[in-house]
């Protein structure tokens, strides 16, 4: 059991969760993740560790409410327990002195990228963060990012904040103005793919943090397999970080959707159940 210190909805459907996990807080490196189970019936959900405090023994997670298990997580309050939190899992991110590093974040990635921003800055890079959302009210975590990066840029589909467009559009503008030595993208698969394509055009070395389906997170089941550079790799132990130019994105999209129909069924099942309970049913 793992105690929740805080849970807050920082943007519609995006939650910031702080949990008590001293052993993980002591060991975790930037780029690593944990697997969280809300309750005994829940799925094992992989979530990047965005920040941590080894002294206080706590870790910070951002997650998007997309399915049953994240819906359950989103209903948990301070002081309640999570059934399981295990980690840190995956290889740490490649951190080094590259020069100018652009970090791109979308959806949960705007939060998750914090760990990499901080480490890249500490390693002596000039760090630029670009966050994207459909509209201004979907951007969050900007104050935290600003503490660690040199510039905090934004992109919105409707143009309500920053540049009208996506991360890759801001990247393109920025690359005209300054040489970029490395790009790092965290977020939904489509966003990472588009950004990696643009970075490739611009000749920028690119790393991405893949978010394939996972069960155990220790290399035991193989559901997380991805093709990178023509080779099958297990994202949970060989990744989650890979060279963005080598990833077989189409395969990743397809594999992420394997259980989509059941995921929708489960969501409806639980939403109904929750509603009935709310109305004094079962």
């Amino acid at each position: 059991m793992t105690r929740i210190i805080e849970r807050r909805e920082v943007a519609p459907n995006v939650h910031r969760l702080i949990v008590e996990a001293p052993q993980i807080a002591e060991k975790v490196r930037p780029g690593q993740f944990v697997i969280v189970m809300p309750d005994e019936e829940g799925e094992r959900v992989p979530i990047s560790v965005a920040e941590w405090d080894a002294k206080a023994g706590s870790i910070v997670l951002f997650f998007l409410e997309v399915g049953v298990s994240t819906m359950k997580l989103a209903r948990k309050e301070k002081g309640e327990d999570l059934y399981a939190v295990v980690g840190p899992l995956g290889r740490p991110a490649t951190i080094g002195k590259f020069g100018t590093v652009v970090l791109g974040g979308g959806c949960y990635g705007i939060g998750a990228i914090t760990a990499i921003a901080k480490a890249m800055k500490e390693a002596g890079n000039r760090v630029i963060a670009i966050s994207e959302g459909r509209s201004r009210y979907l951007l969050y975590n900007q104050d935290t990012l600003r503490r660690f990066v040199d510039e905090c840029l934004e992109a919105t589909t409707d143009g309500s904040a920053g540049k009208k467009g996506k991360v890759q559009d801001v990247l393109r503008d920025f690359a005209k103005r300054e040489k970029v030595d490395m790009a790092y993208f965290v977020g939904c698969t489509f966003m990472m793919m588009r950004c990696a394509e643009t970075a490739k055009e611009l000749g920028i070395k690119t790393l991405v943090a893949l978010n394939s389906l996972m069960l155990d997170g220790t290399g035991m089941c193989g559901v997380c397999r991805v093709s990178v550079g023509g080779k099958t790799r297990f994202a949970c132990v060989d990744g989650p970080e890979f060279d963005g130019h080598d990833v077989d994105w189409l395969e990743l999209f397809q594999r992420k959707a394997i259980f989509v129909r059941d995921e929708v069924t489960a969501y409806q099942f639980h939403a109904c159940r929750a509603l009935r309970r709310h109305e004094g049913g079962d």
């Binding site: 799925e43 399915g67 298990s69 069960l215 059941d262 069924t265 639980h270």
Partner: peptide, 18 residues
């Protein structure tokens, strides 16, 4: 693992899809 550890044969009572 889906069927046994995560009890997906009891889906959707258990959340993991079979």
């Amino acid at each position: 693992t889906r069927a046994n550890l995560l009890r997906s044969y009891l889906f959707p009572i258990y959340d993991t899809p079979p």
